[in-house]
């Protein structure tokens, strides 16, 4: 359209202002992660925006090295919560993808499970908090509380709608002639799905899986409700990063927060192309 110079100036000014504002919280955390304790809890006057003497102490502290400054050592390091988050998110993604992909194929090709689309949207609309009470009781009954696989199972169910909808739109987009050709050659339906469709869908499967993984990794509430000690996830564990002597362990929290924030940001930017499709349940393809 007609681009005047003043509009260009306004555009850059507005965008750069918003970009700056939107980066402040993230950068503050990143900067905090490298600050020594002396720079953590400064009051207004001598607050430091950029670490004056950057250090990796916060990260070392998280993984068990005691810090002379803090006088405390963690009774439990961050290694286990990171493992918990990783295991539950990965296996949750696996469950969601297997169930979601096969159901999406069943619906897309054979029209089976016609009740699923609406049921899965409803499931997505429900606040997890409102569904979790009976799940907590069931999980206690089944001895799944505070296990990574119990958590993974819930993650799998909660994010299956996304896997289902994403894969359904990908299957709907895929030309059927290729499958038909293989069927004519005498392959069985299942073999066609396994040998032809799935390999062709590899990029779609990869980006859907990454999307689902981001969702699972980002959970807080379910981990809070279903894990208590051994398998608490990263965000739940972060709350324990304070001591009676020094108060909030800001640096350690920021360091762990940074570790938790990096995978979804990197993966999210990697699958940028499919974010819109994923977030809108496939209603919108970019």
């Amino acid at each position: 359209m007609n681009r005047s110079l003043s509009f260009e100036i306004f555009r850059y000014a507005a965008i750069l202002t918003i970009v700056a504002l939107s980066l402040v919280p993230t950068l503050w955390m990143a900067s905090m992660a490298f600050k020594p304790i002396a720079e953590w809890s400064a009051t207004g006057a001598d607050l430091t925006w950029w670490p004056k003497s950057p250090t990796l102490d916060n990260f070392r502290f998280l993984f068990g090295e005691s810090s002379s400054d803090l006088i405390v050592a963690l009774d439990r390091t961050a290694a286990r919560p990171i493992l918990a988050s990783l295991l539950s998110a990965v296996f949750g993604t696996l469950i969601a993808m297997v169930a979601g992909t096969s159901a999406a194929y069943g619906l897309s090709r054979f029209g089976s499970g016609g009740n699923l689309p609406l049921a899965l949207i409803q499931l997505r609309i429900f606040p997890p908090m409102a569904v979790m009470i009976p799940v907590m009781i069931m999980w206690a009954f089944l001895d799944l509380i505070d296990t990574w696989y119990g958590l993974a199972l819930v993650y799998g169910i909660v994010t299956m709608p996304f896997a289902f909808w994403l894969m359904k739109t990908f299957f709907d987009d895929m030309p059927r002639e290729i499958e038909d050709a293989a069927l004519v050659e005498g392959c069985s339906r299942l073999r066609v799905f396994w040998k032809i469709t799935l390999p062709m869908m590899r990029p779609a499967l990869a980006s859907s899986a990454l999307f689902v993984f981001i969702l699972n990794w980002s959970d807080y509430l379910i981990g809070l409700l279903l894990t208590t000690r051994d398998w608490v996830t990263i965000p739940v564990y972060m709350a324990s990063l304070s001591s009676s002597m020094t108060g909030q362990l800001y640096g350690a929290k920021a360091a762990l927060g940074l570790i938790a924030a990096i995978p979804p940001v990197v993966l999210g930017i990697a699958i940028q192309k499919h974010l819109v499709r994923g977030l809108t349940f496939g209603a919108l393809k970019q």
Binding site: V24, W28, M29, I234, M238
Partner: peptide, 26 residues
């Protein structure tokens, strides 16, 4: 760059803003 905030784990965002809004905070 503008998409980064939505990809930050919401709980981590909570900790970030908790730090930002401390009385001695940024």
């Amino acid at each position: 760059v503008l998409l980064i905030p939505m990809m930050v784990v919401p709980a981590v965002a909570g900790y970030m803003f908790f730090m930002l809004f401390q009385s001695g905070g940024p």
